[in-house]
């Protein structure tokens, strides 16, 4: 564990609390992509099957359980109690393409041919693009509530810190994970545009609106 990875994981945790806070405070999930949230649930379930096969640390296991449980809970909130506030008409990104694409990539370039490694690779590829329905929805509506922007920013910052974690681990441990690196780099690049708009608008206290 290093400072980049620890802060990244904590930002990932924070992003989930920000999202839950937004839904609870505004009593609405307007502007939140159910597709992105459902994709994250699929990502966590398919990646963390090693909960049953490997024990790394209490921290690692607790975080995995939290990510699975919280993503299931968010999908439930959007699907049931907050369904009337869900902006389905703007959440129109074709998420099935992302799942099929990630599945094909997972089969073409798996970490190994063990079923858990294929699912792990699939989840890595899927996580890289899972934010796209959310970014697409924000582009369609042209703006987002500030708190939703904070959520996406925390997620993007978590990914950016993972890049620094990998550079650090490469030099200190010789750690290499090409699949995670490439997918992680792609994932971070997807946030580039968003970062710029966030920093120039939200940080100056203005509404998050796209040009």
């Amino acid at each position: 564990m290093n400072i980049f990875r620890l802060v990244a994981d904590l930002l990932h945790l924070a992003s989930i609390f920000i999202l839950l806070l937004k839904i609870q405070q505004t009593k609405s999930c307007a502007g939140v992509s159910l597709k992105t949230q459902a994709l994250y649930f699929v990502v966590f379930v398919t990646r963390y099957l090693d909960l049953f096969t490997h024990f790394y640390s209490v921290y690692n296991s607790l975080m995995k359980l939290f990510f699975i449980a919280s993503s299931a809970y968010i999908v439930y909130l959007m699907w049931k109690p907050y369904r009337p506030t869900y902006s389905a008409s703007t959440d129109t990104f074709r998420a099935e393409f992302l799942i099929v694409g990630a599945a094909l990539l997972g089969l073409a370039f798996p970490d190994s041919w063990h079923i858990l490694d294929i699912l792990w690779s699939f989840s890595i590829y899927l996580e890289a693009v899972a934010i796209l329905p959310q970014l697409f929805q924000m582009t369609r509506t042209g703006e987002a509530e500030t708190i939703t922007s904070h959520y996406v920013f925390a997620l993007g910052a978590y990914r950016a810190l993972y890049l620094m974690n990998w550079i650090y681990r490469y030099y200190t441990e010789g750690y290499m994970d090409v699949i995670a690196w490439v997918a992680g780099a792609v994932q971070t690049i997807l946030y580039a545009d968003f970062f710029y708009i966030y920093l120039t608008r939200v940080m100056r206290g203005r509404l998050f609106s796209l040009p």
Binding site: T53, H54, D111, W113
Partner: peptide, 10 residues
């Protein structure tokens, strides 16, 4: 094969 022990990241 088994799951690579390097998959220690979240």
């Amino acid at each position: 094969s088994t799951v690579s022990p390097t998959h220690d990241e979240l």
